[in-house]
């Protein structure tokens, strides 16, 4: 079996398991909608202020809902010793990691793409003015979240305080990516295209994705096998 075939097998296995049980995606969706609701109770903002804080609000929701999903990624394999079987299976650890990453990526993106219209409706914001560019930022930012989240999910899978440790590790490391994604999202939701003043944020996102994808692929063997 070729490498990409192995990646696809793991990814589809995870997606199938999640779509049958829906244990993480339901929780994640409900959580993001509740946060969006709570924010509107808390601030009662006008349309202009809403645009100004949209990037921050959206990415905080995405990051919180994302870790809820990522927590389950490796924890799902603990009962029945599935994780040991996966590690013993004849596929490199990086293929296992990449497969899990892709499955998480699809699931987190799905939650985000549902949350966005809900955000638009609750706050009365026309968020889709620059949709292709916004989608690009979503794709890049979510990949950063998934790569970091998945490697830490693998790292914390055997710890008792798993649910606490994952966000503790993930958010500080994600700061550069989240800052850039928030900045770009705010600009794009306000209707300004990516220009000379914020193209550096896009570069930061791309650089972050490349650096941490590469390093995670190198280190995941150590994390899983020891």
């Amino acid at each position: 079996m070729g490498y990409f075939r192995q990646v696809a097998v793991v990814a589809f296995k995870d997606l199938r398991a999640e779509l049958r049980t829906k244990e993480a995606i339901n929780a994640s969706l409900a959580f993001s909608i509740v946060i969006l609701l709570l924010f509107s109770f808390a601030f009662d903002p006008s349309e202009d202020t809403m645009r100004e804080i949209s990037g921050g609000l959206l990415w905080i929701v995405f990051a919180f809902a994302g870790t809820l999903m990522l927590n389950r990624s490796f924890a799902r394999e603990v009962p029945n010793d599935c994780l040991d079987a996966l590690i013993a299976a004849p596929l490199p650890a990086s293929a296992l990691f990449l497969g899990k990453c892709l499955a998480n990526y699809v699931l987190v993106l799905a939650v985000e793409l549902v949350s966005l219209p809900v955000f638009g409706v609750f706050y009365n914001v026309h968020w889709a003015k620059q949709f292709p560019e916004l989608l690009l930022v979503l794709l890049l930012g979510t990949w950063a979240l998934t790569v970091i989240g998945t490697i830490f999910s693998a790292l914390t899978v055997n710890i008792k305080l798993r649910e606490v440790m994952l966000p503790m590790l993930t958010y500080p490391i994600l700061i550069p990516a989240l800052m850039s994604a928030m900045q770009l999202t705010t600009a794009l939701v306000s209707g300004t295209a990516i220009g000379a003043d914020n193209v550096d944020s896009l570069k930061m996102l791309i650089g972050f994705d490349i650096v941490f994808t590469a390093v995670s692929l190198v280190l995941v063997e150590t994390v899983l096998v020891g």
Binding site: I148, I151, L169, I173, P176, G207, V211, V215, L219, T222
Partner: peptide, 22 residues
């Protein structure tokens, strides 16, 4: 020791990116 070493590597790579982003 293994997990901590992995986090140490990731943390070190993150620091310059955070400095630039900030």
């Amino acid at each position: 020791a293994t997990s901590a070493a992995v986090v140490s590597v990731l943390a070190f790579l993150d620091a310059p990116l955070a400095a630039i982003a900030i």
